[in-house]
Design a protein around this nucleic acid. Sequence first.
DNA 1: TTGACATATTCCTATATGGGAATGTAATGT
DNA 2: ACATTACATTCCCATATAGGAATATGTCAA
Lengths: 124, 124
Amino acid sequence: MARASTTSDAFNAVAEPRRREILTYLAGAERPVGDIVDALGLEQPSVSKHLRVLRDVGLVRMRCQGRQKLYRTNADAIRPLHEWAATFERYWQHQLNRVKERAEAMVRAGVKDLNSKNTNDKEK
Amino acid sequence: MARASTTSDAFNAVAEPRRREILTYLAGAERPVGDIVDALGLEQPSVSKHLRVLRDVGLVRMRCQGRQKLYRTNADAIRPLHEWAATFERYWQHQLNRVKERAEAMVRAGVKDLNSKNTNDKEK
DNA sequence: TTGACATATTCCTATATGGGAATGTAATGT
DNA sequence: ACATTACATTCCCATATAGGAATATGTCAA
């Protein structure tokens, strides 16, 4: 056999980085396809195809509005992933990281505004 | 292009159900390959190949002991997955479910009292 | 050494992509 | 009706499996 279909479940669907980006982008509000294309810098057919996969596994919902279609992330469909990962929570380096994070938080509180925003800025 | 390699990252590696089963099985303690084969009912070469993938992305660690190799899940490597999923946590039906669960709990508490006090139970 | 045991790797094959290009389709404007 | 806008789908193709069979490698025992 070959690898399982990307439409078989959420685990397979989110294995693709672009689909994760799309989900993140559509998490807060519904957007038309064109916005996704512009925001992520992908080809329109590519976005449509990714949305198709995401829709098949229920990770996004779609609504028609005139000639555009508005998509939004269905966050609930991500819960199974979160819960599966959470079953390993008790094996993490719990207190170790907590101590570290707490220390870092205190440092940040002191330094505050040195680092404002960190990740992907795809502005043009 | 085709789909990304399963060894490219944890997201791709855990897209395969059997690999998730292996990770779960190896979460609590290290086990030799043969135990995995017996426990999950898979072919030995298949297990070895899955372990190879899991090892390449750091999801399991291996230790040699005589002629057998002991594997264990490296839970920390699962944290990125958990954290990615957690970024959607604020979009879940949080309070909704909590309110519902709380209401149900109250109902149950009430019913329980009623039942214990005055019983016309036809339960079996 | 020889053999048994525990794993890993290789070979083969059917299948499932994901990107690019081209095309199809539905809704809206003039 | 016709052009335009906004998406979706189809076709082609290089690539990456995952399983099964066969084989290779490594370790310990007699």
